[in-house]
């Protein structure tokens, strides 16, 4: 049991922080990529959270506070072994230029699968692998919004960027991910090969 030496902190920590263990693990796994690293990340996160529990404002969302710590720990660790491919990928994505209001995927799906039913036929592991291929800032935004249901403001506060940046990361991250899943479905023979040309981001050239 946790010692009760820090006034009321331990009991409220157990009640408010520990119930989010599964969510923090899910997030840690998407950030780090392997179960071993995710477990280390979770342990580190909860230990740090416990030590700084005094800074947590009761009544605010403990979940997004824990996510913030988790991401900070992850980013600090990554500083040492920075992944070059992510950076390159992000810059390539940022040059995407004009983006279409109409989802470019829809042109390929029109008349075939306009409502995107194919998304649900893709194996869970393939979906997760596709998420892991996104640049970290897009991945964080997509996971926190689509999976964990955080608001734009919560994500903005967590990641230290304006709400507008969160929106654009979500937009680009989702479109990239959709494109990867679409290509997977075509390769798997779930969808027919589409005619027409498009750049690798799936955007219409400016």
């Amino acid at each position: 049991m946790i010692a009760a030496s820090r006034s009321n902190a331990p009991s409220s920590f157990e009640e408010e922080a520990l119930p989010h263990l599964e969510a923090v693990y899910r997030f840690a796994l998407r950030l780090s990529g392997t179960p071993d690293q995710a477990e280390d990340l979770v342990q580190d996160t909860f230990l740090r959270a416990y030590r700084s529990w005094g800074q947590y404002t009761p009544g605010t969302r403990a979940k997004s506070w824990l996510f913030t710590i988790c991401r900070n720990v992850f980013l600090r660790q990554r500083e040492r072994g920075r992944r070059h491919d992510e950076i390159v990928q992000r810059h390539a994505a940022a040059r995407g230029g004009v983006v279409d209001l109409v989802n470019p995927l829809w042109r390929s799906l029109d008349g075939v699968d306009p409502e995107g039913a194919f998304f649900r036929s893709i194996l869970d592991d393939e979906v997760l692998r596709a998420i892991d291929r996104l640049p970290e800032d897009y991945r964080t935004a997509v996971v926190l919004s689509d999976v964990e249901g955080l608001t734009y403001i919560e994500i903005a506060e967590m990641t230290g960027v304006p709400v507008g940046t969160v929106k654009s990361r979500l937009f680009r991250g989702r479109r990239q991910l959709q494109r990867v899943l679409y290509d997977y479905a075509v390769e798997a023979g779930v969808l027919p090969v589409a005619s027409g040309t498009r750049d690798e981001e799936g955007h219409v050239a400016p």
Binding site: L18, L21, E22, Y25, R26, L29, R30, P35, E39, V42, Q43, F46, L47, V102, N103, L105, W106, L109, P114, E115, G116, A117, F118, F119, R120, I122, D124, D125, V127, L128, I131, V142, V143, D146, V147, R174, L177, Q178, L181
Partner: peptide
């Protein structure tokens, strides 16, 4: 259909992530 497409996409993301479970005993180790 655009709305449905985005909904299908999100359902897939949620479903895939929901299949993830923490390793046994993690809570105790923490």
């Amino acid at each position: 259909p655009h709305l449905r497409l985005e909904e299908s996409f999100r359902t897939a993301l949620r479903g895939a992530s929901g299949s993830v479970q923490s390793p046994p005993g993690l809570r105790e180790r923490v």
